[in-house]
Structures are given as C-alpha cells and as structure tokens.
C-alpha cells in the first residue's frame, strides 16, 4: 500500500543528548505509568532505555533492518518480535505467597512466576571490552521517531495510521485498526506494539494532549539528566533547529532505513582507552565504527564539533553549543507554544 503522506505544516521533534543519560529509566516509568498500564500492553514500552553495545529492546532491533523501506520506496516486511525472547513477557510475581511463608520452615521468595528469557532492560550495563582497558557502554533511550516517511503508515491496509498535519505526530486510529500487525512488522525501530487484549496496535503519541497545551512529553519533562530537548524543527530560536541544523551535532538513529526520523541524538563522547601499561591513549573507548553503525557517517562531524566546542569551553571561551547542552536553564530545553486543542469526535 502506498499512501500519499502529506507534509505536515510543522514537525514536532526531540533531541536526546546521550552524553548525559544515566540510564535511570525515569522516562520509561513516566511513560509507562501514563499510557501503558493496561493488561494488553503490559510487555510494551513506548519509551525504553537500552544499554549499547547490547542486544537492544526488543532484542535484535539494531541487527540489519527487519522492516523499513525497499530501495524503490515500498514497504519491506519485517518480523513481529517474539514475546518471550525479544520483548520479554511481563512477568507476574508471588508476593502474597512469599509474605505468607514468613513463619513457615520452607520460605517462598518473591520471583517471577514465568520462565525469564528476556526483558526490556535485560543486558543493562553489560557493554563490551575489558576492564580497565577499554570496557564501555552507553545508554540509548528510544521512542517512536514520528518519521517523515513512516513505513508503518504505508504498511497498514486499513489506512489506520496517519501523520498529523499540525505537528507531524504519527498516530494509530484505535477504531480503524484491526490488529493485523503489518505496522509492527514494518517499523524497523520496533516502536509499534500490539495490544493483545484490545487486539489493536498502539504506539507513542508524543504525549499529544500535553503538546497541545504546550507541555513537553512526560519522558522529557521528568528526565533528571535534563538531556531531552523538545520543540519544532522549523523554529530557528528553538533548541532543535540549533542542534540539528545549525550545529549539526544531533543526528538520527539508523538513517540508512530511509524513514526520516524526527528524533535525534547527540552521540556519546567517551574517555580514552588505556594501553597495555594502563596509560591513557588518544582513542575513545566507544569505537567510532560502532557509533557509525547506529548513526551513519554523520557521527564523525558531529563528534568533531562536540569535541571542538568542549575544548573551547575548557579554555574559558564562550560556546553557545556547550551552554545549550549543559542546560543551565532547563526551561530552555522546551519550546512549545500552546495550541488550540483538537476536539476528537
């Protein structure tokens, strides 16, 4: 199916500075508590935080694309991740039995009732390399990219997915959706989830009711690391334009998928590797080739710009980029004028 995806009037967007993410998962919980506590979405995380290098969430998401677009621009069918081995089932627990056994000789301890195979944060902090020479990892928070050319839209035979004219947010019409899961297959970022109770697909709505009020999404507002920036891509006074267009330090994840993501990342700098004697070398711990496999060739100039501006700031010179990334004034991270709220029928 090929739909004529209209260009939205404006595109709302997010930049995440990976140098500041501490993997606390506050964003994950902020999102989950707000939108995803239903039984049918218990396993799903519109916002997740992965440790990379690692298997990601769902497991295997960074392997060569499972979905996306063909060279001709059509939809490439991918896979629906396995509930146990890729997403990880939402385990249930035995608190009552554990408490009841307090005075009994055989104690029952709190543990998952189901067999544990994988979960949304299963390989947390594992990373790669040898301590202390080159051990490394970083966190990658992920949400729907609200792509400019979303594969999920084209994959749907019901025309149930649309990109909003006002702000470019990609939404699944919960009434039109029949739960075929073609969108789940097609999204190479695996950010459309199937609600197995309501039998429809669901995904990140960029906290649309908040955006309409001029309030940033919950994942961004609650981030203790202040690493998220939210605004419109065409706002030259806003942080998105400055980081993406002006300084070119914020780049999309997996640009090779060709979907035009509207979520951007400031790639992580890393401390130097140590040589065999334990002396610091000039080489970063996170191999740039690995970052290139995630962010494409644009990671090179982005890292160079970051290092140059950081060096400038260290010399005591002014740097608009560093001041922006440090987020001295957190309110400046978000530039979202409130809009007329859309009345849904």
């Amino acid at each position: 199916m090929r739909y004529d995806i209209p260009k939205p009037l404006r595109q709302v967007s997010m930049v995440l500075d990976l140098n500041k993410c501490l993997g606390c998962q506050t964003c994950t919980i902020a999102c989950k508590k707000l939108w995803n506590t239903d039984e049918g979405t218990d396993y799903s995380y519109w916002n997740s935080v992965e440790t990379l290098p690692g298997r990601g969430f769902p497991a295997g998401v960074h392997d060569p694309a499972t979905g996306g677009r063909t060279v001709e621009g059509g939809v490439r069918r991918g896979v629906v991740p396995n509930l146990d081995t890729a997403y990880g089932r939402a385990w249930t627990f035995n608190h009552e039995e554990a408490r009841a056994s307090a005075g009994a000789p055989d104690k029952i301890w709190i543990r998952p009732r189901e067999t544990v195979k994988w979960g949304p944060n299963f390989d947390e902090d594992q990373g790669q390399g040898d301590y202390p020479k080159d051990n490394h990892y970083f966190y990658l928070p992920r949400l729907c990219n609200h792509c400019t050319h979303p594969a999920c839209v084209d994959a749907c035979p019901r025309a149930a997915i649309a990109k909003r004219r006002e702000d470019g947010i990609v939404l699944v019409d919960q009434d039109r959706c029949h739960g075929y899961r073609f969108c789940v297959e097609a999204c190479p970022y695996k950010k459309v989830y199937y609600d197995h109770v309501r039998q429809v697909s669901t995904k990140c709505i960029f906290c649309l009711p908040r955006i309409e009020e001029g309030v940033a999404p919950a994942c961004a507002r609650q981030c203790p690391g202040r690493l998220r920036f939210v605004g419109y891509r065409d706002d030259e006074q806003g942080p998105i334009w400055k980081l993406v267009e002006k300084w070119k330090v914020a780049i999309p994840l997996h640009p090779e998928y060709g979907l035009g993501p509207n979520v951007f990342y400031v790639p992580p700098m890393s401390p130097p590797k140590l040589d065999a004697e334990g002396r610091p070398t000039g080489e970063p711990r996170i191999p740039v080739s690995y970052l290139e496999s995630l962010f494409g060739a644009a990671v090179h100039p982005a890292l160079e710009a970051l290092l140059a501006e950081r060096a400038r700031r260290r010399r005591g010179e002014a740097s608009e980029l560093m001041d922006l990334l440090i987020a001295y004034d957190w309110q400046q991270n978000f530039r979202l004028p409130p809009r007329q709220r859309e009345v849904l029928g």
């Binding site: 301890w109 709190i110 949304p120 944060n121 902090d125």
Partner: peptide
C-alpha cells in the same frame, strides 16, 4: 519489590 520495577531488571536480586 513492585512488579513494574522488577520487570526493568530481572525479577530477582542480582550480584554484578
């Protein structure tokens, strides 16, 4: 020990 938080790790105490 809340299920939501336990699911973000591995469900049981871990030694790193």
């Amino acid at each position: 020990d809340t299920p939501m938080m336990l699911r973000l790790q591995r469900g049981e105490p871990q030694v790193w």
